[in-house]
Amino acid sequence: MTAEPQPEDEPRGALPTLAGLAGVPAHTAARAWGNVRDWATHGHLADTTRMPRLPVHHGDGYTVHRYEPTAPVDPDLAPLLLVPPLGAPDFAFDLRRGASLVEDLLATGREIFIVTYDASGRAAGRRGLELWVDEIVPAALYAIADRHGDSPVHLAGWSLGGLFTLLAAASHISGAPIRSVTAFASPVDVSAVPLVAPFRSVAEYTGGRVFSAAYRTLGSFPATAVKWAFQLTSVERYLTKPVTLATHLDDRELLEQIEAVDLLMANMTAYPGRAFGQIYHHVVRSNDLAEDRLRLAGRPVRLADVDVPVLLVAGADDVIAPVAAVERATALLTSCPDLRFVVRPGGHLGVLAGRRARENSWHDLQEFMRAHDDA
């Protein structure tokens, strides 16, 4: 790895001083001074105002929102439901103005929806993965389809949200109206994730008792721990961040991206206890997804049963969901009528919301959906 800045996954940090600007070109120094002046005046550089949205469906522990159109709605474009992961805020899809997948999609005339979860409350810790796979995602799909003449809906998820979309398509218990599935940075084979190796070793040695006792005692996997896990994936960038900032004060877009990612990191939420336990035992410890032997609510949920088009997007620099961990799904999705796998620039967040996403993964998503809008 090098110290070259990768703004998609930058850790938190304050804007540095202007030390070291002496000797740089006048236009560069002027941009840098302007950026620092704006930051000092307004307290921020990035416009993180969220795209307006309204709730259209409420359920037990979840809400479906419709983003307000910014262009005339094109009836030939099927609606899209976005599925965020547990732990990370849903505005990963709407990171900042100029770097928002939601904003970009709305400009095409497509209707965009998102399902959000209630991570608090006494019942949250008892919610298992089957709730998202069999109830929340299907209910959101039906609510949207009902607004569009019962027409099937595109699905797109990031990280664990991507796995929710794949598993919802695999679980035919609900008969949910799915047109296509796109999974961004969704690791199917955790044996290909270096960061998970120590936890698997401890689990094997202890029979899983250490982590089981921890999450049962806490009732969840704390938000602080979720944040630390993300930061551990970019330790070098965290250590070199002051240098990166000091040498790129003239790069407004980079500074805005870092600021927006800081905000996302500050809003991590806890994983519900039961869901975290299932992820730990079935995904981390046993790697059931990679062997297509996952069982939820006592029944098998197999990727081999997914019979809708699927697009898998991996980040070239992703250490949470490395390319091999995502690519493993291509050997399991044997019933897909159209299966696409692409590797695009960026880390775990960068492949979804990075500065290079528009011409890469966002383009892939739009091209994929257009290919199946009339299915």
Results as ranks from 00 to 15, higher is better:
E10Y: 10
P11R: 05
L15K: 04
P16D: 10
A19F: 09
G20T: 13
T28A: 14
A29Y: 06
R37D: 14
P52F: 03
P55K: 06
H57R: 15
Y62V: 03
T63E: 12
T63W: 08
V64N: 14
P75Q: 00
V83M: 03
L86P: 01
G98P: 01
A99N: 13
D104L: 05
D118E: 12
S120A: 14
A124M: 07
A124W: 07
A139D: 15
D146S: 15
H148W: 02
P152H: 13
V153I: 14
H154V: 05
L155M: 11
G157D: 07
G161D: 02
L167C: 11
A169R: 00
S171P: 00
H172E: 13
I173D: 10
P177V: 00
P177S: 05
F184W: 15
S186I: 06
S191K: 08
V193K: 05
P194E: 09
V196I: 15
V202Y: 06
A203P: 01
A203M: 00
S212A: 15
A213R: 03
A214G: 02
R216G: 10
A229W: 10
F230I: 05
L239D: 13
K241M: 12
P242G: 06
T244K: 13
L245H: 12
T247N: 09
T247K: 12
E253D: 15
E256G: 11
I258E: 09
T269Y: 14
F276Y: 13
Y280N: 08
H281G: 11
H282G: 04
R285S: 03
D288T: 08
L296N: 13
V310K: 07
D317T: 14
D317F: 13
V319Y: 15
A324Y: 08
A329Q: 03
A331C: 02
P337Y: 09
L352E: 07
A353K: 10
G354I: 07
R356T: 12
A357W: 03
R358W: 05
S361I: 05
W362S: 02
D364V: 01
